[in-house]
Write a protein that binds this DNA or RNA. Sequence first.
DNA 1: GTCAAACATGGGACACAGTATCAGAACCGG
DNA 2: CCGGTTCTGATACTGTGTCCCATGTTTGAC
Lengths: 184, 184
Amino acid sequence: MRAEVAAIVGDLVLEQGYERTTVDHICAAAGISRSTFFRYFPSKEDALLGGVADSGETLRDALAARPEDELPWVAVRRALQPLIDRYAADDERVRRLTRLMMTTPALLARHQEKNARWYELLRPEVARRLGADVDDRADPGPQALIGAALACVQATLTVWSANPSSGSLSDILDRAMGVVGPVG
Amino acid sequence: MRAEVAAIVGDLVLEQGYERTTVDHICAAAGISRSTFFRYFPSKEDALLGGVADSGETLRDALAARPEDELPWVAVRRALQPLIDRYAADDERVRRLTRLMMTTPALLARHQEKNARWYELLRPEVARRLGADVDDRADPGPQALIGAALACVQATLTVWSANPSSGSLSDILDRAMGVVGPVG
DNA sequence: GTCAAACATGGGACACAGTATCAGAACCGG
DNA sequence: CCGGTTCTGATACTGTGTCCCATGTTTGAC
């Protein structure tokens, strides 16, 4: 049921854009009331993006599983692979929704807000691999490295979703992260 | 007049937080009507952040002025100096407002939305310095590098605004960008 | 000095997201 | 059949932001 409404939201949004799709439209199309909609989803953004599982924990575990002697930047690149694969495995619909997400300010903001949790999640392991004090909040290093990596992911998704023939996500991410640091 | 209202907004927001400060409160404190407020500022966020001049063009010109043989990452670091100095020159009020901006999701989102313009602004020069095709939209490199640098700036501002005794902004930015790439 | 055009302000209605409360319907186990 | 839980819808509310219109108030032309 929840998934059904989410699918309708995706359809409507792909059809007429995000801002022009009001909650009332969605409710009318789904045959439910506003009350019910907001019981299923905390917000309109979540109805659209909530389907994408939050991979924060996955990412953290993948990073912790990388070999100790790998350079931090390389380890992060490798840890991002499962995340990337989840996008790549999907079809044209995902690409169009991703494009919508990257080009709609409200959606991009929400996406980044969701990812803000990843900073705290990844910080300990990144700090450890950088040889920094894990509890030192005055060290910008870990946050900078995580933010840089996420910026590369965002650049990757932007290019991939905008250019149908730009190659595999994995290759684009290699190029993106290769420009910033060694992906060895 | 506009500046006067903006100052009141800053006061109220520093006093009781951003969400709890409604436009009605501001109007009452400033002795104007809602209509007038929204003629001065397009939104509540802009009333608070609009005072910070948009340094996109400054940043672009500073980057273009860097020596040709500098590594791109180093050139960007140097080009960011004027931006950083603008923060550092100011007083405790700026630090508190910055902290508010980094910790309030709505404000951080607006800030990043404003900075989104910088990508297009800086892309040509960064692409050139990377030896890439300036018009190739399928190359994630320039966007990745710019995003990584801005992530370092954000990490810097976060640490600086949260820790009163964390040193100069310039030093923090050096540490942040040094972790990601060579700052020469 | 007068008239008119421009502008600034305020008021009120509206659209939309999101919250809270309450009332009834469907469903369950006993 | 009953009592409770959960699902649902209706209503009203807060807050941001837009739009339109009715006021001044200033400015400039004649």
